[in-house]
Design a binder for these strands. Structure first.
Lengths: 217, 217
DNA sequence: ATCTTTCCCACCTAGGTGTGAACC
DNA sequence: ATGGTTCACACCTAGGTGGGAAAG
């Protein structure tokens, strides 16, 4: 084609601005890189869990009028099983057999190039699960394995044509992650909380408040 | 065309099943009809308010593969201004000049006939406002005036072709309503609350609970 | 004993809703 | 005084999140 297609991962900057403890991520640096340095972990659950940071790409050079389908899939990054011991990830044997591969088709697909180029494309609705029998179409992963998300652009005007259409694939190594059913690295857990996007779970009850509750009786 | 296009307003049945006071709507009858008997009121606000009951249509007889744009607009039902006095709506003069007409294009548009026919089409995201300077594209209405929603089907593969495309228009008289900035008829207000879909606002504090709060000091 | 998974639940955000007093 | 409008706010739903105990 005449114009080259360019795809860039959109930086996801942390929004934390509270008191920055030792563990919090520096503001203004890309969240993906920050977590990558620590060893990104993604929680997988039976009912499905989103990715964090969100996977966003900006794309240019498409034909404005031609229709495209945009997809994300997640493939094994290597052939190992891992364990987390003494604050570090160690190889713990050979990988379990790969599970049925599933494509996450961006819900706007198919859409013309101008639509995709107008703003960053966000794949935040993709969900990860460890449920081998999942019927929602979520991406099924093995816990304690390392994965690599991949982004694809397909020239296709209809979803039915997808299997026969030309693909272009883009990989961003900083989006590699380990699938877990519970956070292993406390720094990763704290980083998610600090980056503000994650909604806090049940807080340890504040001492003062706890006292008051106790006094109700 | 060979097959006739059929469009039906989808009944919106109330979900209330609590203690049914004198004012609550009977279960299992169409909400639109129920409110129509009372004189449907729709609140309009500066920041925009959804319609209730939701406007839903079921459509059949479209060409499966052809593309359509589905729209809703809301036009003056007559040339009067109204007032609510002694529990009834009375004509109170001539209508104010009509405000700029706005079309609400269903966000799935354009889409093939099979998409529209697969399930009821819901226009619940349309918002009503009385803000003449609105920049969100909400539908602008005059308070204390009577309106009639209209549903349109346009044969058009692109939004840009809309102005030149053929329309088919459907009107459901039971969806007429009066635009208000605050509910006038208590029965309408109570009907909305009873039908359950409306999220309750601040409740009059339950006496028992109030007492407890007061005792906190 | 250790590691990993599962489950329920309190908490959070986002956004729609009527309240009631203030405003005009 | 009246009638209509505005506004901040408590409440609601829906759905995503980590906590922590319990189970495997």
């Amino acid at each position: 084609t005449a114009t080259p297609v360019r795809v860039g991962l959109v930086p996801c900057c942390g929004t934390s601005d509270g008191p920055t403890g030792e563990l919090s991520l520096k503001k203004g640096r890309d969240l993906w890189e920050q977590f990558h340095l620590l060893g990104t972990e993604m929680v997988i659950t039976k009912s499905g869990r989103r990715m964090f940071p969100p996977f966003k790409v900006r794309i240019s050079g498409l034909d404005k009028k031609a229709k495209y389908i945009l997809l994300l899939d997640i493939v094994a990054a290597d052939d190992c099983r891992y364990k987390f011991q003494q604050s570090r990830w160690l190889v713990a044997g050979k990988a379990d057999p790969e599970l049925p591969r599933r494509l996450y088709i961006h819900p706007d697909s198919p859409a013309p190039g101008e639509h995709w180029m107008a703003r960053a494309v966000n794949f935040h609705k993709l969900k990860l699960t460890n449920n081998v029998a999942d019927k929602h179409g979520f991406t099924i992963l093995n816990s304690m394995h390392k994965y690599q998300p991949r982004f694809h652009v397909a020239c296709a005007s209809e979803l039915l044509h997808l299997p026969y259409s030309a693909f272009r694939t883009y990989v961003f190594p900083e989006t590699q992650f380990l699938a877990v059913t519970a956070y292993q690295n406390d720094k990763v857990k704290q980083g998610r909380i600090d980056s503000g996007t994650s909604m806090k779970g049940r807080n340890k009850q504040d001492e003062r408040e706890k006292k008051r509750d106790d006094m109700e009786y």
